[in-house]
Design a protein around this nucleic acid. Structure first.
Lengths: 358, 358
DNA sequence: TTGAAAGCGCTAACAG
DNA sequence: CTGTTAGCGCTTTCAA
């Protein structure tokens, strides 16, 4: 290593003491006389000594590094999470290694393997949905501290999860629409489940199987069903707009929907990508927001406050999600204290001008 | 280390060969008989051996890790750069460690120090503007491979820089406005230099001192001056709108400007943040785009295609900037071949509906 | 082809 | 308080 070639031995030699004496003062543990300390510190400073964390990690078994694995750091949600994550990690004395998976299970597995080889002390991951998350399970079994972000799936029941309350998020949005007097409320979703499949979950918290094992999109759909059921509004499958996960597909889906359902008065899009598609679709059909159709989007994206009127959205505390995940992970790394199996941060409905009374 | 506790010694023992024999086959160098190879591989597989990159790095002096230091990974420009960076790094066999500086020189210095302690093989950095980037210079002197991203400053002349051609980017936008017949063209800028200071740079490429040592904002201002000068349009200091670096300040600056200069027909905002402020300011003054005022923004942000009409912008190839920086860095790490001192990727004017003929 | 041994930089007993 | 010593896991001569 060209840079930082000065080692603890160089310092010791320059200070005229033994290697271990130097090590003791440099690592701030063990004891040393004032004069030794001074000599060592002075020498270290003069030589530009910089501790080699590799060697430290080698001995201690702790790299003070954590890994984060997400689909794509360029997606605003994840880049904000990453920000919260890095800040918190730094404050706790950890560096962070990032990986993108592009929602590919193989890439994810490879990334996890690489992080493990780097001997990270723990991992925060927004896992790719897959039938058998074996790479993750393997690491878990080996005792690697792992925190799930945003979602969980079967096989990962034991891992702590940090996310918003997806059910509640959509429930809030839809309920606010109901309170505005809307009855024909459409939901734009990526979920594929028909509502009868989700019936068991709509009866309120604590019922049925574990909601947290469903995809966020399905959980949000449940929130919609719950809000309607609570208000005594019958579920109409036709009001549930299914869409693939791109803005273009969402736009097309919304356009087709609007063409066949002119009586709808409100729409809630359950995701950032779907929200922009919805907005585009509504505009392309010449409908005015909120006069002709009320809209509530998801995630506080830039554009939602740049358009007229600004769009009401359900906002996720993105940075706090990252920060909380990190705090939890650090707790696992340091303490081994049992971490909460699920931490749900509150999503907040930002009321702006895109939803009006009916 | 609880996880991955199986070492090369365990494998060797299980395979009934020596440590070094196992090491040779596992590291794919040196020679080994087929039978040995088979036994070792089988044992490694059965035991779930995972190489310890720390130990490898310890010996080889290469961690196969690079660091990236930016103001804020949550800013769309940097998150996209990071994406390009990580992809390219991975493909070249490197992991990436991220740091945010919040444009604070002290945090930057601390981050660099930490990366150096982690023994990263190289660093890509969008440096904080500061009179004396001593932490960076120190690392440079120690031989750390470093690539500058987006900007350079005095003291860092020797480091390779990867950025767009800031001068050309603005020049393109302003020239297109001129071609549309505009003469009273305003520029929204964060730069503080008055145009006479920049006079020397406006005479075309290759003249005067090194443009690359100026801030991007100043370079972009030069592009504006050049375009006007080439078209024989006199520079009017009053058309240069100075703003602090927030959307709010930009909006206020534009509003105040519009109030005092009703004869302006076009405006170019030289940065993403300033662009949204400009858009808001224009709308709040009730001006129609492009009927009353033509607008060209900077950076292809989400909102620019969500509003009506969509906003023309100068787009930076963000991911490619990250990829190019990484390729350059890897070249320095591996080869020591002299890297180009500056690589300028072309910015592209995306023509949409916000600029109209005059 | 194979094994023994040294050593990367640091920490942590253990004696003195 | 201080120095000697033994590794952490791996790679890499060097002999055999």
């Amino acid at each position: 290593m060209a840079h930082g070639a000065v080692t603890i031995i160089d310092v010791a030699r320059a200070a005229g003491v033994s290697k271990s004496a130097a090590a003791r003062v440099l690592a701030q543990n063990g004891s040393a006389s004032d004069v030794t300390r001074k000599k060592v510190l002075e020498a270290a400073d003069r030589l530009g000594y910089r501790p080699n964390q590799l060697a430290r990690a080698m001995k201690s078994g702790a790299t003070n590094t954590i890994g984060i694995v997400v689909p794509d750091v360029a997606i605003p949600f994840f880049s904000a999470v990453l920000r919260g994550l890095t800040d918190t990690a730094r404050a706790a004395g950890f560096e962070v290694l990032v990986s993108n998976t592009d929602n590919d299970a193989d890439i994810e597995a490879r990334s996890l393997e690489l992080l493990a080889e780097q001997r990270v002390d723990g991992i925060v991951i927004a896992p790719v949905f897959q039938p058998e998350p074996s790479a993750l399970i393997r690491l878990q079994n080996e005792g690697m501290p792992i925190v799930l972000l945003d979602r969980r799936m079967p096989g990962l029941e034991e891992l702590p999860l940090v996310s918003i309350d997806h059910v509640d998020a959509t429930e809030q949005a839809v309920r606010s629409l109901i309170e505005l007097g809307h009855r024909r409320i459409a939901l734009l979703t990526e979920a594929v489940q028909v509502h009868s499949t989700l019936e068991a979950f709509t009866e309120g918290p604590g019922q049925g199987s574990d909601v947290s094992l469903l995809r966020p999109s399905a959980q949000r759909l449940i929130g919609y069903l719950r809000a309607l059921r609570q208000a005594g509004i019958a579920i109409d499958e036709d009001l549930i707009i299914r869409s693939g996960y791109t803005t273009e597909l969402a736009q097309e889906a919304v356009e087709a929907f609007l063409d066949r359902s002119p009586d709808v008065t409100a729409l809630h899009a359950t995701d950032a990508v779907l929200s922009s598609g919805a907005y585009r679709g509504i505009r392309s059909r010449g409908l005015r927001i909120p006069e002709d159709l009320s809209l509530i989007g998801f995630d506080d994206q830039d554009w939602t406050t740049m358009v007229q009127p600004p769009v009401s959205v359900v906002e996720q505390p993105r940075q706090r999600l990252g920060a909380t995940a990190t705090t939890t992970l650090v707790g696992m790394i340091r303490g081994g204290t049992a971490e909460p199996r699920r931490q749900m941060l509150a999503a907040e409905l930002l009321v702006r001008g895109s939803a009006a009374p009916r």
